[in-house]
Simulated assay, not measured.
Amino acid sequence: MKEKKLGGRPKLASYQKRTKCFRVMFTENDYIYIQSKAQQAGLSVNEFCHQAAMGCEVGQRISPEMMSAIRDLSGIANNVKQIAHQMHIYGLEAVKQQCFSIISEVSRIITQVKNNNHDSED
């Protein structure tokens, strides 16, 4: 007897089978956008989402300490702008102490951020 050839693609090995599912909700506009991106890539929406999820790098959220440091640096930037304006009017000697104060504060914040980053990596 002749063996009947089975149609279709060969079965996947157990380690290649996708057995787990995530449910993700999108807005109507997001879904249309993803459909169009998948179509441009020549993929199904499922395969496009799978490849996008597997190929992306997710960064760590900014910690509250880091946000505080960013706010502090933003305030210092404003102070530097004001000091530069005063330097143009009164000269460097008149605002020298303010400059040293800002430099030490920026150094403190940078040290704090470095210490927080080293703590979070452990």
Results as ranks from 00 to 15, higher is better:
E65H: 11
S14W: 05
Y15W: 06
A38H: 10
Q60N: 15
A77G: 12
S74N: 07
T111W: 10
S44R: 12
S14M: 03
E121T: 12
I70F: 06
E47I: 08
K2F: 01
G55K: 06
I89G: 09
M25S: 13
I34R: 15
V80Y: 02
P10T: 09
I89M: 14
Y33H: 15
D119P: 03
M25P: 04
N117Y: 11
Y33S: 14
V95F: 03
D30H: 08
H88K: 13
N115H: 15
Q40H: 06
A41D: 01
E47D: 13
Y90H: 13
K96Q: 03
I70L: 11
N78T: 01
Q98L: 03
M25K: 12
L43P: 05
E93F: 08
H85Y: 08
V106E: 03
I76T: 02
K11Q: 00
I32P: 08
T27P: 06
Q40R: 10
S101K: 09
N46L: 05
I70G: 04
M1H: 11
S63M: 14
Q82T: 03
A94M: 15
N79R: 05
N115M: 13
M67G: 09
G55L: 04
R108Y: 04
Y90G: 07
S101A: 09
R61D: 14
H118R: 14
G7T: 08
L12I: 00
V80F: 02
A52F: 05
C56G: 07
K17F: 01
M67N: 14
C49W: 11
I83T: 06
A69V: 02
A52Y: 05
A84G: 04
A94W: 15
Q39I: 09
K37T: 08
R23G: 02
S107T: 09
M25T: 10
V80N: 02
H85V: 00
V58E: 11
N46Q: 11
M25E: 10
G7S: 13
M87W: 03
I62M: 15
A41M: 05
D119I: 06
K37Y: 10
A41H: 05
D30R: 13
K11G: 00
E105Y: 07
C99T: 07
E47F: 05
H85M: 03
E28T: 10
F26R: 13
E93H: 07
A13H: 04
A53W: 09
D119G: 11
S107R: 14
R108W: 03
N29D: 09
F48Q: 12
V45L: 14
Q16W: 01
K20T: 09
V45R: 13
E121G: 07
N46D: 12
A41N: 06
S63R: 15
